[in-house]
Design a protein around this nucleic acid. Sequence first.
DNA 1: CCAATACTCAAGTTCATGCTTAACTATTCA
DNA 2: TGAATAGTTAAGCATGAACTTGAGTATTGG
Lengths: 111, 111
Amino acid sequence: MLNYSDIGESLRAIADPTRGMIVDQLCRGPATVSELAAPFALTFAAVVQHIQVLEHAGIVVSQKVGRVRTCRLEPKGLAPLAKWIEQRRTMVERQLDRLAAYLNEEDAKDT
Amino acid sequence: MLNYSDIGESLRAIADPTRGMIVDQLCRGPATVSELAAPFALTFAAVVQHIQVLEHAGIVVSQKVGRVRTCRLEPKGLAPLAKWIEQRRTMVERQLDRLAAYLNEEDAKDT
DNA sequence: CCAATACTCAAGTTCATGCTTAACTATTCA
DNA sequence: TGAATAGTTAAGCATGAACTTGAGTATTGG
Protein backbone atom coordinates (compact mmCIF):
# COMPACT_ATOMS: atom_id res chain seq x y z
CA MET A 1 0.00 0.00 0.00
CA LEU A 2 1.50 3.29 -1.10
CA ASN A 3 1.19 6.07 1.41
CA TYR A 4 1.62 9.80 1.26
CA SER A 5 5.37 9.78 1.82
CA ASP A 6 5.82 7.83 -1.43
CA ILE A 7 4.19 10.47 -3.57
CA GLY A 8 4.52 13.71 -1.63
CA GLU A 9 7.34 15.08 -3.71
CA SER A 10 5.80 14.42 -7.12
CA LEU A 11 2.49 15.72 -5.82
CA ARG A 12 4.00 18.97 -4.60
CA ALA A 13 5.92 19.22 -7.86
CA ILE A 14 2.85 19.23 -10.08
CA ALA A 15 0.66 21.15 -7.63
CA ASP A 16 2.12 24.48 -8.72
CA PRO A 17 0.13 26.03 -11.60
CA THR A 18 3.20 26.91 -13.66
CA ARG A 19 4.65 23.43 -13.29
CA GLY A 20 1.27 21.87 -14.01
CA MET A 21 1.12 23.77 -17.28
CA ILE A 22 4.69 22.81 -18.12
CA VAL A 23 3.65 19.17 -17.75
CA ASP A 24 0.60 19.87 -19.95
CA GLN A 25 2.92 21.34 -22.56
CA LEU A 26 5.43 18.47 -22.42
CA CYS A 27 2.56 16.07 -23.00
CA ARG A 28 2.42 17.29 -26.55
CA GLY A 29 6.05 16.38 -27.03
CA PRO A 30 9.60 17.29 -25.98
CA ALA A 31 10.52 20.96 -25.74
CA THR A 32 13.53 23.13 -25.02
CA VAL A 33 13.77 25.31 -21.94
CA SER A 34 13.15 28.40 -24.07
CA GLU A 35 10.08 26.87 -25.64
CA LEU A 36 8.73 25.94 -22.22
CA ALA A 37 9.40 29.44 -20.89
CA ALA A 38 7.78 31.27 -23.83
CA PRO A 39 4.10 31.02 -22.76
CA PHE A 40 4.71 32.43 -19.29
CA ALA A 41 5.00 36.02 -18.13
CA LEU A 42 7.96 34.99 -16.04
CA THR A 43 11.69 35.39 -16.20
CA PHE A 44 13.71 32.63 -17.77
CA ALA A 45 15.30 31.85 -14.41
CA ALA A 46 11.92 31.24 -12.78
CA VAL A 47 10.97 28.67 -15.41
CA VAL A 48 14.36 26.99 -15.11
CA GLN A 49 13.74 26.62 -11.38
CA HIS A 50 10.37 25.02 -12.04
CA ILE A 51 11.92 22.57 -14.47
CA GLN A 52 14.53 21.66 -11.87
CA VAL A 53 11.78 20.87 -9.37
CA LEU A 54 10.03 18.64 -11.90
CA GLU A 55 13.29 16.87 -12.72
CA HIS A 56 14.14 16.31 -9.08
CA ALA A 57 10.72 14.76 -8.60
CA GLY A 58 11.41 12.36 -11.48
CA ILE A 59 8.57 13.67 -13.62
CA VAL A 60 10.72 15.33 -16.27
CA VAL A 61 14.04 14.29 -17.78
CA SER A 62 16.29 16.42 -19.93
CA GLN A 63 19.48 16.28 -21.89
CA LYS A 64 21.70 19.04 -23.10
CA VAL A 65 23.02 19.03 -26.64
CA GLY A 66 25.31 21.93 -27.31
CA ARG A 67 23.78 24.85 -25.48
CA VAL A 68 20.21 23.61 -25.82
CA ARG A 69 18.51 21.58 -23.11
CA THR A 70 15.58 19.49 -24.31
CA CYS A 71 13.01 18.29 -21.77
CA ARG A 72 10.46 15.52 -21.96
CA LEU A 73 8.16 13.72 -19.56
CA GLU A 74 9.62 10.69 -17.84
CA PRO A 75 7.15 7.88 -18.66
CA LYS A 76 7.39 6.29 -15.23
CA GLY A 77 7.25 9.64 -13.44
CA LEU A 78 3.52 9.83 -12.87
CA ALA A 79 3.06 6.10 -12.25
CA PRO A 80 3.26 6.11 -8.42
CA LEU A 81 0.86 9.03 -8.28
CA ALA A 82 -1.60 7.24 -10.54
CA LYS A 83 -1.32 4.16 -8.36
CA TRP A 84 -1.85 6.09 -5.12
CA ILE A 85 -5.00 7.74 -6.44
CA GLU A 86 -6.31 4.48 -7.85
CA GLN A 87 -5.76 2.72 -4.53
CA ARG A 88 -7.77 5.38 -2.72
CA ARG A 89 -10.54 5.33 -5.26
CA THR A 90 -11.00 1.57 -4.99
CA MET A 91 -10.91 1.73 -1.19
CA VAL A 92 -13.68 4.32 -1.17
CA GLU A 93 -15.70 2.17 -3.56
CA ARG A 94 -15.34 -0.77 -1.20
CA GLN A 95 -16.51 1.42 1.68
CA LEU A 96 -19.62 2.29 -0.28
CA ASP A 97 -20.24 -1.38 -1.06
CA ARG A 98 -19.98 -2.29 2.60
CA LEU A 99 -22.32 0.54 3.51
CA ALA A 100 -24.86 -0.61 0.92
CA ALA A 101 -24.64 -4.19 2.20
CA TYR A 102 -25.15 -2.97 5.76
CA LEU A 103 -28.16 -0.90 4.81
CA ASN A 104 -29.69 -3.86 2.97
CA GLU A 105 -29.20 -6.00 6.05
CA GLU A 106 -30.91 -3.44 8.28
CA ASP A 107 -33.67 -3.17 5.74
CA ALA A 108 -34.20 -6.94 5.80
CA LYS A 109 -34.47 -6.89 9.61
CA ASP A 110 -37.20 -4.25 9.50
CA THR A 111 -39.49 -6.09 7.09
CA MET B 1 -8.86 16.75 -22.84
CA LEU B 2 -8.60 17.81 -19.23
CA ASN B 3 -6.06 20.50 -18.57
CA TYR B 4 -4.43 21.87 -15.48
CA SER B 5 -7.18 24.34 -14.62
CA ASP B 6 -9.61 21.44 -14.19
CA ILE B 7 -7.60 19.77 -11.46
CA GLY B 8 -5.48 22.53 -9.93
CA GLU B 9 -7.61 22.92 -6.84
CA SER B 10 -7.83 19.25 -5.93
CA LEU B 11 -4.14 18.87 -6.69
CA ARG B 12 -3.18 21.73 -4.40
CA ALA B 13 -5.55 20.35 -1.79
CA ILE B 14 -3.85 16.98 -1.52
CA ALA B 15 -0.33 18.32 -2.09
CA ASP B 16 -0.01 19.39 1.53
CA PRO B 17 1.50 16.62 3.71
CA THR B 18 -1.06 16.98 6.49
CA ARG B 19 -3.96 16.87 4.07
CA GLY B 20 -2.41 13.95 2.20
CA MET B 21 -2.25 12.00 5.43
CA ILE B 22 -5.83 12.96 6.29
CA VAL B 23 -6.87 11.46 2.96
CA ASP B 24 -4.80 8.36 3.76
CA GLN B 25 -6.63 8.08 7.06
CA LEU B 26 -10.09 8.59 5.58
CA CYS B 27 -9.34 5.78 3.15
CA ARG B 28 -9.66 3.37 6.00
CA GLY B 29 -13.17 4.65 6.70
CA PRO B 30 -15.09 7.68 7.95
CA ALA B 31 -13.74 9.60 10.93
CA THR B 32 -14.68 12.52 13.16
CA VAL B 33 -12.73 15.76 13.19
CA SER B 34 -11.22 14.81 16.56
CA GLU B 35 -10.13 11.42 15.26
CA LEU B 36 -8.53 13.03 12.24
CA ALA B 37 -6.74 15.57 14.41
CA ALA B 38 -5.39 13.06 16.93
CA PRO B 39 -2.31 11.81 14.97
CA PHE B 40 -0.96 15.30 14.34
CA ALA B 41 1.14 17.54 16.54
CA LEU B 42 -1.09 20.41 15.52
CA THR B 43 -3.84 22.42 17.12
CA PHE B 44 -7.38 21.37 16.51
CA ALA B 45 -8.05 24.55 14.57
CA ALA B 46 -5.24 23.82 12.11
CA VAL B 47 -6.68 20.41 11.28
CA VAL B 48 -10.17 21.88 10.89
CA GLN B 49 -8.76 24.33 8.36
CA HIS B 50 -7.18 21.48 6.40
CA ILE B 51 -10.48 19.60 6.36
CA GLN B 52 -12.20 22.72 5.04
CA VAL B 53 -9.72 22.90 2.17
CA LEU B 54 -10.34 19.25 1.30
CA GLU B 55 -14.10 19.79 1.44
CA HIS B 56 -13.92 22.87 -0.76
CA ALA B 57 -11.96 20.86 -3.30
CA GLY B 58 -14.68 18.22 -3.33
CA ILE B 59 -12.42 15.47 -2.02
CA VAL B 60 -14.03 15.13 1.41
CA VAL B 61 -17.65 15.42 2.51
CA SER B 62 -18.89 15.70 6.06
CA GLN B 63 -22.08 15.87 8.06
CA LYS B 64 -22.68 17.06 11.56
CA VAL B 65 -24.82 14.99 13.92
CA GLY B 66 -25.24 16.66 17.27
CA ARG B 67 -21.89 18.20 18.07
CA VAL B 68 -19.88 15.63 16.11
CA ARG B 69 -18.82 16.14 12.51
CA THR B 70 -18.04 12.96 10.62
CA CYS B 71 -15.91 13.12 7.48
CA ARG B 72 -15.48 10.67 4.64
CA LEU B 73 -13.93 10.68 1.19
CA GLU B 74 -16.18 11.76 -1.65
CA PRO B 75 -16.05 8.87 -4.13
CA LYS B 76 -16.00 11.14 -7.19
CA GLY B 77 -13.52 13.55 -5.65
CA LEU B 78 -10.32 12.04 -6.99
CA ALA B 79 -11.79 11.01 -10.35
CA PRO B 80 -10.76 14.07 -12.42
CA LEU B 81 -7.25 13.87 -11.00
CA ALA B 82 -7.01 10.19 -11.89
CA LYS B 83 -8.21 10.99 -15.38
CA TRP B 84 -5.73 13.85 -15.85
CA ILE B 85 -2.80 11.69 -14.84
CA GLU B 86 -3.97 8.79 -17.00
CA GLN B 87 -4.31 11.06 -20.03
CA ARG B 88 -0.75 12.26 -19.58
CA ARG B 89 0.60 8.78 -19.09
CA THR B 90 -1.00 7.48 -22.28
CA MET B 91 0.21 10.50 -24.23
CA VAL B 92 3.78 9.89 -23.12
CA GLU B 93 3.44 6.22 -24.06
CA ARG B 94 2.32 7.26 -27.53
CA GLN B 95 5.33 9.59 -27.81
CA LEU B 96 7.61 6.67 -27.00
CA ASP B 97 5.88 4.49 -29.58
CA ARG B 98 6.33 7.16 -32.23
CA LEU B 99 9.98 7.52 -31.28
CA ALA B 100 10.48 3.75 -31.51
CA ALA B 101 8.80 3.68 -34.91
CA TYR B 102 10.99 6.53 -36.12
CA LEU B 103 14.16 4.83 -34.89
CA ASN B 104 13.15 1.60 -36.61
CA GLU B 105 12.63 3.50 -39.85
CA GLU B 106 16.05 5.13 -39.60
CA ASP B 107 17.52 1.75 -38.82
CA ALA B 108 15.94 0.26 -41.92
CA LYS B 109 17.46 3.03 -44.07
CA ASP B 110 20.95 2.33 -42.77
CA THR B 111 20.97 -1.40 -43.53
C1' DC C 1 -28.29 23.59 35.26
C1' DC C 2 -23.40 23.25 35.17
C1' DA C 3 -19.34 21.23 33.30
C1' DA C 4 -17.24 18.92 29.74
C1' DT C 5 -17.01 17.92 25.00
C1' DA C 6 -16.78 18.88 20.05
C1' DC C 7 -16.27 22.00 17.12
C1' DT C 8 -16.21 27.03 14.83
C1' DC C 9 -14.36 31.44 13.71
C1' DA C 10 -11.39 35.63 13.44
C1' DA C 11 -7.09 37.77 13.85
C1' DG C 12 -2.30 37.87 13.98
C1' DT C 13 2.40 35.62 13.21
C1' DT C 14 5.82 33.00 10.81
C1' DC C 15 7.98 30.73 7.35
C1' DA C 16 8.39 28.36 2.82
C1' DT C 17 8.11 29.00 -1.91
C1' DG C 18 8.08 31.49 -6.04
C1' DC C 19 9.97 35.31 -8.17
C1' DT C 20 13.43 38.77 -9.69
C1' DT C 21 17.91 40.60 -10.45
C1' DA C 22 22.38 40.15 -11.75
C1' DA C 23 26.51 38.02 -12.78
C1' DC C 24 28.27 33.91 -14.92
C1' DT C 25 29.50 29.77 -18.35
C1' DA C 26 29.23 27.43 -22.62
C1' DT C 27 28.00 27.20 -27.47
C1' DT C 28 27.03 28.91 -32.07
C1' DC C 29 27.74 31.67 -35.98
C1' DA C 30 29.15 35.50 -38.91
C1' DT D 1 37.45 36.61 -32.63
C1' DG D 2 33.51 38.93 -31.07
C1' DA D 3 28.60 39.11 -30.52
C1' DA D 4 24.50 36.73 -29.88
C1' DT D 5 22.16 32.82 -28.02
C1' DA D 6 20.86 29.35 -24.42
C1' DG D 7 21.06 28.25 -20.14
C1' DT D 8 22.93 28.23 -15.02
C1' DT D 9 23.44 29.85 -10.38
C1' DA D 10 23.21 32.58 -6.17
C1' DA D 11 21.22 36.08 -3.34
C1' DG D 12 17.56 38.54 -1.60
C1' DC D 13 12.67 39.96 -1.53
C1' DA D 14 7.77 39.37 -0.92
C1' DT D 15 3.52 37.13 -0.78
C1' DG D 16 0.50 33.63 0.67
C1' DA D 17 -0.38 29.54 3.10
C1' DA D 18 -0.06 27.14 7.36
C1' DC D 19 -0.23 27.59 12.08
C1' DT D 20 -1.40 29.48 16.73
C1' DT D 21 -4.06 31.93 20.01
C1' DG D 22 -8.11 33.04 22.03
C1' DA D 23 -12.80 33.65 22.38
C1' DG D 24 -17.13 31.85 20.95
C1' DT D 25 -21.41 28.42 20.01
C1' DA D 26 -23.97 24.12 20.33
C1' DT D 27 -24.57 19.60 22.33
C1' DT D 28 -24.22 16.04 25.77
C1' DG D 29 -24.08 13.90 30.35
C1' DG D 30 -24.32 13.90 35.32
